[in-house]
């Protein structure tokens, strides 16, 4: 399927989903749906570096938080501008602020992408478990910086009060849901494009054998930097709407362990070699967690993720996509 047709299909599915939720559901569907879609973006972003290149990133929460806190920062600047005495500079700032959420998403992606670039330069000469530990350390460093940065709320956290309704969309959560749907479309399209491109071949060679990749002419360091930037930017974009979703942002919620665990578990369960894997994994795990939250307990979430991850690692190490591919291969042989 060609890319324009693929995008049209994505838009159609997204529109149908939105209209179904709007027609048959209530705001809870949008709240739960937003979380699942956020995980689709996170899992897709993780998979660009972790799945395509084989570099396991435990610092997803760090990139997610950069997106979230860039929104908090610009929101706080906007609030302070409103309190300033009128003057030439403040009148200019009044035009700029408050910055619309779609622009904040771009800012969040850009900042997280930049941090991804820096992380890449510092850590990509490390491999395997050493790289994984370095990314985990990065998340801890970012959390420490945020906790000590009073302007964005520090350890106390910061309130963001979104409007109740938005023209056209109605309730604010529906607006956020649509924005997250757009991010899903961007993320899946980017992942699919990468997979079928020269870049995708390069990423696969890095995952399989870096030395052989270099010997085949693949500039591995450059490609890994591209992967960290793309992966970080997508995670940052997913995080940038989070403060508007919760209304209150504090380090404990943004740097929650569940983001790192889910970002890894979802592609692993769905399958890491294809863009479909993170999508399947995120929908499956995300939906199960939402169901568990309302039927059992919210603390059961990580237990479910952990158990499923163990099960899949044993039974289907290549995830659901791998199982499917094996089944097709067996069928074609018989």
């Amino acid at each position: 399927m060609r890319t324009p047709l693929f995008i049209i299909c994505e838009v159609v599915v997204a529109t149908v989903l939105y209209l179904l939720f709007r027609h048959y559901g209530n705001d809870y569907f949008f709240f739960a749906g937003y979380t699942v879609l956020q995980f689709v973006v996170m899992a897709t972003a993780w998979n660009i570096l972790g799945g395509y290149c084989g570099y396991v990133n435990f610092g997803s929460a760090g990139f997610f938080a950069i997106g979230a806190y860039s929104s908090v920062f610009f929101y706080t600047v906007g609030q302070n501008v409103q309190d300033m005495d009128p003057g030439f500079l403040t009148s200019v700032l009044h035009v700029i602020f408050p910055i619309p959420v779609p622009i904040l998403i771009v800012f969040g992606g850009a900042f997280a992408g930049l941090v991804g670039l820096g992380t890449g330069y510092l850590t990509l000469r490390l491999r395997g478990v050493f790289f994984a530990i370095a990314t985990l350390a990065l998340a801890v460093v970012i959390e420490t910086l945020i906790v000590n940065w009073e302007y964005v709320g520090g350890s106390r956290g910061a309130y963001i009060i979104p409007p109740n309704t938005v023209p056209v969309f109605g309730p604010y959560i529906q607006y956020l849901f649509v924005l997250m749907l757009v991010m899903v479309i961007v993320g899946l399209t980017a992942a699919r494009l990468i997979e079928r491109s020269r870049l995708g071949y390069g990423f696969a060679t890095i995952r399989d054998d870096e030395l052989a990749a270099e010997a085949s002419g693949v500039p591995t360091l450059k490609l890994k930097l591209i992967a960290t930037v793309l992966s970080g930017a997508l995670m940052g974009m997913a995080g940038s709407t989070f403060p508007f979703y919760l209304g209150f942002t504090e380090p404990g919620s943004v740097f929650d362990l569940s983001y790192a665990v889910n970002s890894i578990a979802m592609p692993m369960i769905g399958g890491t070699t294809s863009w479909v894997g993170p999508l399947i994994g995120a929908i499956l795990l995300g939906t199960m967690q939402q169901v568990a939250t309302v039927t059992i307990s919210s603390v059961a979430n990580l237990l479910i993720v952990g158990l499923m991850l163990i099960g899949f690692v044993i039974v289907a190490p290549n995830g659901i996509v791998g199982l499917w591919q094996d089944w097709i291969a067996k069928r074609s042989k018989s």
């Binding site: 020269r198 071949y201 390069g202 696969a204 060679t205 995952r207 399989d208 054998d209 030395l211 052989a212 990749a213 010997a215 085949s216 002419g217 693949v218 500039p219 070699t273």
Partner: peptide, 23 residues
């Protein structure tokens, strides 16, 4: 290489395609 180091997740043809694309 002394010990063959093919790209295991790529097909035989795709293994050949990599140096064509990148070199």
């Amino acid at each position: 290489f002394q010990l063959p180091r093919p790209f295991m997740s790529l097909s035989v043809a795709e293994n050949i395609r990599v140096p064509l694309l990148y070199t």
